[in-house]
Each structure stands twice: as structure tokens, then as C-alpha cells.
Amino acid sequence: MSFSFTKANLERIEVLKNRYPSTQALSLPCLWMAQYQEGYITLDAIDVISETIDVPAMEIYRVATFYTMFHLEATQKKRVLVCKTLSCKLCGSEGILEHLKGHDVLVEHVECLGSCGTAPVMQIDDVNYENLTPEKVDTILEALR
């Protein structure tokens, strides 16, 4: 197998094993670690997680496909999550989505990000950018290049 957890992650996993009644609880934490390590979750990583926490690989795989934030495919582009749910829509998310078409990023239309009071919002690398305007989007993406 070509995947292996970093030393730091292996240490985190050992700490977490003492935090839960069963190692199965570690499937989401491990999937996150694998995703941060490689940018997405490979089948190799799933097999390694399966061995690490003693849960069948299929169970890890079906968990990975249930949650929208886990990516099973690689992308070279920056992922930009744009909330399309009601409060953001009422405050102009459609204009933001339209504007993003002019940028070379991977736009994902996602459901409510919990920024209803500061809508519209996009999330890049776990950070929310709120009260967006097209101009703000340009500035943010420029700064992140």
C-alpha cells in the first residue's frame, strides 16, 4: 500500500484511541487526517484506516461517501464552497456563483454553512469568507493565489 499516516498523525490516533469506547469512532478523524495528508481520500488510505482501527474497509468507504466534505477524487484546482441555501440566496449568492465562473477554481454549491447572518458566504480551505461581493471575491482569490 502506498499510503501511510505521518508520524504526527499516528501519534494523534493513539491519543484518540484512549478517548473513545471503540476504535470505530476514529473513522471520521482518520478520514480527515488522510484527506489533509493527500488532498483527497484514496482507496489505499481506506485500507490503511481499516487496518488501523480494525473496521472493514467497506464500512470506511461507505462512510466516506456519505459525508459531502470527504473527497474521493483528486483535483488540482482550489475548491471554493459556495452556500446556495436560503439566507445566502436571499442575499445574493447567485451573483457570487455567476461571478466565480470567471475564476479558475472548482466551485461546489453547498448547503448552509452557518453564515446566514453574514451572507453570502464561501468557504476555502476551512475558512469562511463572509458578506461577499464580487469585488471581495476577486480580492480574496487574488490573495490566496
Partner: peptide, 29 residues
């Protein structure tokens, strides 16, 4: 007391208490 933060991964239904526990058990919500 040991406080552990457990991160979800994008599923509205995990706000339902039994789905939340399933998810925290490492399963689908």
C-alpha cells in the same frame, strides 16, 4: 473530565441526536 471535539464532515442529518451518535461511532449518519 475529558472533553473531545469530534468533527463531522458534511451531513445535515447528523444534527438528529441518534444520527449524531451513529456518526460519532464512526458510521454513516
Amino acid at each position: 473530565v475529558k472533553i473531545t471535539l469530534h468533527r463531522g464532515a458534511g451531513a445535515y442529518i447528523c444534527g438528529e441526536k441518534s444520527a449524531l451518535l451513529e456518526s460519532m461511532e464512526g458510521k454513516r449518519g
